[in-house]
Design a binder for these strands. Structure first.
Length: 259
DNA sequence: ATGGCACCATCTTGGTGA
């Protein structure tokens, strides 16, 4: 099974590019972030026509996540547990039913800038809730993964110019510590299980010719539970997508699992 | 040191992002 994560930066602006990539890459499951749309306005027919089940958790203008799947989706839930006051649409879960079932968590983790400040406090509090959900996922001892736009640069090698990110919410020590705490519960960063070394990015800013200079960062991740990590066959970043017409500032990251 | 670009809303400008 091929599963991809893709921050599309707006479904209205990206629908044609997203459809083209789906036709090329043929993922069985696509976990989307920043749909920036309410559920009713999501062009679901475009994807249902391609054989995907469509589950969205949207909101007006900002945020919003979705799961597209060619396999049946069950037990869909929306919202990250732990704060009833939080109305930002950043989390969706579903179980994909294949020859083995897989629990999928799709996230758009808060950016957190400027740091320090209330937005950074929200990011760290959100990651505490993520840690709690991650613990519960592991208790099931079933194949599970958490994927999406983590807005975390895990290591210096995951940025072309790490010094430029030193005080940024994506790279500050507290952010990386919170990410490591979650990984250290027993998750595998799928990309780093397959590829080592610098020069692998999933985001390039629209500004200052970042793509042309390859000034990128790796912030879109797939974290596998031990049971899912045992099924990992491959993980790659479709960086070439960033060079197409009207691209998102993120590109797809995909895993192939023996499911 | 700064801003640069793109998206969204309904506004031709400001909020947000990373």
């Amino acid at each position: 099974m091929k599963l991809a994560t893709f921050n599309i930066n707006g479904i209205k602006a990206r629908a044609p590019a997203l459809a083209e990539w789906l036709d090329e890459a043929q993922p069985d499951v696509a976990v989307l972030q920043e749909i920036k749309s309410v559920d009713e306005a999501f062009p679901r027919e475009m994807f249902e026509d391609r054989g995907y089940a469509v589950e969205t958790h949207g909101q007006k203008s900002f945020n919003g996540v979705a799961i597209l799947s060619k396999l049946p989706l069950e037990d869909v839930t929306r919202g990250l547990p732990g704060d009833d006051e939080d109305d930002q649409a950043r989390w969706i879960e579903a179980t994909v039913v294949g020859k083995t079932s897989l629990r999928i968590c799709g996230m758009y983790l808060p950016n957190g800038n400027p740091a320090p400040g209330p937005k950074y406090d929200y990011k760290l509090a959100w990651m505490e809730r993520l840690h709690a959900r991650a613990q519960d996922l592991l208790k099931s001892e079933e194949p599970a993964l958490m994927t999406g736009d983590f807005n975390i640069i895990p290591q210096a090698e995951d940025a072309k110019t790490p010094d430029a990110w030193r005080d940024d919410a994506l790279f500050r020590p507290e952010s990386r510590t919170a990410f490591r705490r979650i990984v250290n519960l027993g998750f595998t960063d799928a990309f780093r299980a397959r590829t080592y070394g610098p020069g692998h990015y999933s985001f390039w800013d629209y500004q200052a010719g970042a793509w042309q200079r390859d000034n990128g960062i790796r912030i879109d991740h797939v974290l596998l539970s031990p049971e899912a990590a045992d099924l990992l066959k491959d993980c790659k970043i479709d960086a070439y997508i960033r060079g197409k017409e009207k691209p998102s500032d993120h590109v797809p990251v995909w895993v192939e699992l023996d499911i």
